[in-house]
Nucleic acid binder design. Structure first.
Ligand SMILES: NC(=O)c1ccc[n+]([C@@H]2O[C@H](COP(=O)([O-])OP(=O)(O)OC[C@H]3O[C@@H](n4cnc5c(N)ncnc54)[C@H](O)[C@@H]3O)[C@@H](O)[C@H]2O)c1
Ligand SMILES: NC(=O)c1ccc[n+]([C@@H]2O[C@H](COP(=O)([O-])OP(=O)(O)OC[C@H]3O[C@@H](n4cnc5c(N)ncnc54)[C@H](O)[C@@H]3O)[C@@H](O)[C@H]2O)c1
Lengths: 240, 240
DNA sequence: CTCGGTTTGTTCCTGCGTTCACAAACTCCT
DNA sequence: AGGAGTTTGTGAACGCAGGAACAAACCGAG
């Protein structure tokens, strides 16, 4: 899912663990809001929806912040994870492509509260220039390089149509953005050292569809091992 | 990421493979539109952004649809994957929660073109009732059970605030929906046999932030292996 | 028909991720 | 102070995923 091939981070935090740390952070925040000050690995794990042994192993990679016989201090653990992820300093985000999805993202309050500031909105459509979304004006994508430099953009969100995604990404990367979140259904190629994560909602739906078909095998998939009926079948309509 | 613990599907397609099949489908569609009728595992793999050995192994789980010395017939392979995923029949989708994100999803044309029909929009806010989004009228969430039954809803998309997500999910499940796509930042608990997939954009950003911090270790994270400074640290501001 | 070139399907191997299980460490009660 | 009860941190086992490498199969030229 990431560009980097190594599954291990420099100082040794496994990728799978990194992907779960934000989950723990969210669970800790929920506990904290409920007034809980200390919690066991069992409690935290169930709040995060994972196995408690896995939680303990994950946390052990950050250091030894628990107390045997007691559990974890919620406030301290929350800080330690925040620091490890790098959330102690805010990061600036630029959203490119302000169609349906881009506008929803720009309006989302959950980003800022987690340390991500959406500081710039860029689009190619002149009709959108100057439009205000979430207290920001949409600016021409031509200004991308200037915006990235001036506003110290760390993360670029690509919410353009698939055809434009690679070009936009190239420009973001050239301007110095090394972290990309891509919503367009395309494979982005980026140079070494740039981190791309993709979110593809159609793929999620398709995975759900697969499991559903497995549950109700009405149309028994009839795998024909014989290479007989080849190239004949009509394919479902599938635009885009 | 899924509710089912087994990483292997009944007839033996690994989860990791299932997650990539939609990728291959997309790549095949692109090739097909470019007029390509046959392609090698190498070409398809690079279009999908994966290793060619992995692609071949993935495809071998569906059957033997390639021809040695030649490659794969694009149209046929596309159909075989579609059938395996269960895309030969359309599926009805209900979107619950029509705020920023829900409206963007309802307006997205890419779902229908891939065999997912958004057939119902539900919200709790009376001000939205009757509003037309993507040719559909927003209906009260009170009608959820009726809608699921009448319109044969197979997949429920939860785009409500986190607080409402579990309740909405419970009702969807009780009404017979066994596939849920959740956008709310919460852990959903569902009975055995129900499939939940989550999309959490904040988590994606946090993972990017982690890797970025690793690249530029300005604030060297200073893991204190000594259990000295414990429970003392003040926590960073982190509202919601 | 035979042979060289090409590409698939599969086997083997390595490494990561997950879970189990337990010793070490801590608290609290007597 | 000592012992019973908890809970963490980790060593070990196991299963899965990814990648390299190769034999089998196919095509086309001669
Ligand atoms: N809307 C969804 O729910 C949804 C779901 C899944 C995937 N996606 C994907 O997300 C992307 C955006 O979806 P959307 O529904 O918002 O599409 P959209 O068509 O509504 O918006 C795309 C926006 O990108 C702008 N744009 C086009 N070329 C550009 C360029 N070169 N530079 C800057 N901006 C440019 C357009 O002007 C437009 O405003 C698409 O790739 C889509 O496939 C969207
Ligand atoms: N907008 C984004 O880009 C974004 C990004 C990441 C995560 N999310 C998550 O997605 C969810 C929706 O985000 P949003 O920005 O669209 O929020 P929103 O507040 O704009 O919309 C939420 C909608 O849900 C409706 N709702 C509330 N309770 C309901 C109930 N019980 N039944 C049915 N509908 C109900 C509300 O009336 C509202 O229309 C949230 O959980 C949010 O955290 C959104």
């Amino acid at each position: 899912m990431t560009a980097r091939t190594s599954a291990e981070s420099p100082r040794g935090i496994p990728e799978a663990t990194v992907a779960r740390l934000p989950l723990y952070l969210r669970a800790l925040t929920a506990l904290s809001e409920r007034g809980t000050t200390v919690c066991s690995s069992e409690a935290l794990a169930s709040a995060a929806g994972v196995n408690s042994a896995m939680l303990r192993k994950d946390l052990s990679h950050l250091g030894s912040y628990g107390t045997r016989g007691v559990g974890y201090d919620v406030a301290n653990l929350r800080y330690q994870i925040s620091r490890e992820i790098g959330l102690t300093q805010d990061r600036n985000v630029a959203v490119v492509g302000l169609g349906n999805l881009g506008q929803a993202l720009a309006n989302y309050a959950g980003f800022r509260s987690r340390g991500f500031r959406v500081v710039s909105l860029l689009d190619a459509d002149p009709r959108l220039f100057g439009m205000t979304v979430a207290d920001l004006q949409v600016r021409p994508v031509a200004e991308l390089e200037a915006v990235v430099a001036e506003l110290d953009v760390a993360i670029g969100v690509v919410a353009t149509p698939a055809e434009a995604a690679q070009e936009v990404t190239d420009r973001l990367v050239a301007a110095g953005v090394a972290s990309i979140l891509n919503f367009a259904p395309t494979v982005l190629s980026v140079p070494e050292g740039v981190d791309v994560r993709k979110v593809d909602l159609s793929i999620e739906l398709q995975i759900l569809a697969f499991h559903e078909q497995r549950r109700s095998p009405s149309y028994a998939p009839t795998i024909s091992t014989t290479p007989a009926a080849r190239g004949a079948v009509a394919v479902q309509e599938e635009g885009r």
